Amino acid sequence: MIRNILGSLVALAGAAAAVLSPFRDWYDGRAGRDYRLRDLFTGITGTGSGVLLSILLPFLVAAVLVVLGVVLRSRLVVAVAGLVVLGFTILWMVRQGQAAGSLAVGGDGVGLQAGVAYALGGGLLMLIGALLMAGRVRRGRAGREPYAPEPYAAPGPDQVDTWPPTQEPGMSTHTSPWPEPEVDPYTGPDPRDPRTRSYPRASRPDRGPGESGDPRDPVQPPSPPSSPPWG
């Protein structure tokens, strides 16, 4: 923004200097508005010219281009205006040198005078202003909003109540890529422990208690023999 303002001021100052230059003396006391625009292409003559048909015309066009370039923020338009002013000024110097045999720089109304300096300075100021200007900003970049990551939203009450997630019947919450280890669903005593090992009972009816082979059956002491009936 600051570059555009500064460049625009410099370019407008150059345009003002270029428009003012034809009203100043250019060579040997002759003002720039007295040179016909056609003489720049055919040769300098002593014939006078109207204001709008003189060298002032391309300078006015350049000034309009500068204003247009400042409004549109176009560096190219401002630069073209500066090249127009410099081009017509240098062309006049070439034709004047051909007509006079040489170009002299002096004072007291002899040789090149202030009008030429105004024209050359105005053209250079236009080019400097075009370089200072930042130009137009593309709409795609200007209208693009900067990326701002959205803050993490805290879990709602419905999410808090259900944490940790409950496991549905038949579903597994295992998230590891490795398979889950197999778990034996048997929760009884260790069958390898001899203290808890069970033995099948014998089906023979002639065995009494404690003779079935099952160590868990209590061993009953033998009953004393009954006395014979004759005793």
Results as ranks from 00 to 15, higher is better:
Gln113His: 04
Gly123Ser: 06
Pro58Glu: 05
Asp25Ser: 13
Glu168Ala: 11
Pro224Ala: 12
Val78Phe: 00
Arg24Thr: 08
Gly135Met: 04
Leu132Trp: 01
Pro221Val: 13
Asp25Lys: 12
Val137Gly: 07
Ser54Asn: 04
Gly111Leu: 01
Ala130Ser: 09
Asp217Asn: 08
Val94Trp: 04
Gly32Val: 03
Gln159Cys: 13
Ala119Trp: 00
Ser102Met: 05
Gly48Asn: 13
Glu145Lys: 14
Ser49Ala: 10
Val67Ala: 12
Ala202Ile: 01
Gly121His: 07
Gly14Gln: 01
Thr162Gln: 10
Asp39Trp: 02
Ala130Asn: 03
Phe23Gln: 06
Ala31Val: 14
Asp34Trp: 06
Pro179Glu: 04
Trp230Tyr: 13
Pro189Leu: 14
Leu86Gly: 01
Met126Asp: 02
Gly129Ile: 07
Phe23Val: 10
Ser223Asn: 15
Arg197Tyr: 11
Ala31Cys: 11
Asp206His: 14
Asp217His: 08
Pro222Arg: 15
Arg139Thr: 14
Pro165Glu: 10
Pro229Arg: 15
Gln98Asp: 07
Gly69Met: 01
Val77Glu: 05
Ser226Val: 08
Ala117Cys: 08
Ser212Asp: 09
Pro215Met: 01
Pro157Val: 08
Gly46Tyr: 05
Ser203His: 12
Glu182Pro: 13
Thr42Arg: 10
Asp214Met: 12
Pro191Val: 05
Val105Thr: 11
Ala18Lys: 05
Leu60Ser: 08
Gly46Leu: 05
Pro225Trp: 11
Pro165Gln: 07
Gly121Trp: 04
Leu91Arg: 11
Thr45Ile: 02
Thr196Pro: 05
Arg216Met: 10
Val66Gln: 01
Ala117Met: 08
Leu60Trp: 06
Arg207Tyr: 02
Ala11Asn: 01
Arg207Gly: 02
Leu91Gly: 05
Gly143Ile: 08
Pro221His: 15
Pro228Gln: 12
Glu182Ser: 10
Val10Cys: 14
Pro181Glu: 07
Leu127His: 01
Gly97Gln: 03
Gly111Phe: 04
Phe59Ile: 04
Gly50Cys: 00
Gly46Asp: 13
Asp214His: 10
Ala13Gly: 12
Ala154Lys: 08
Gly87Asp: 06
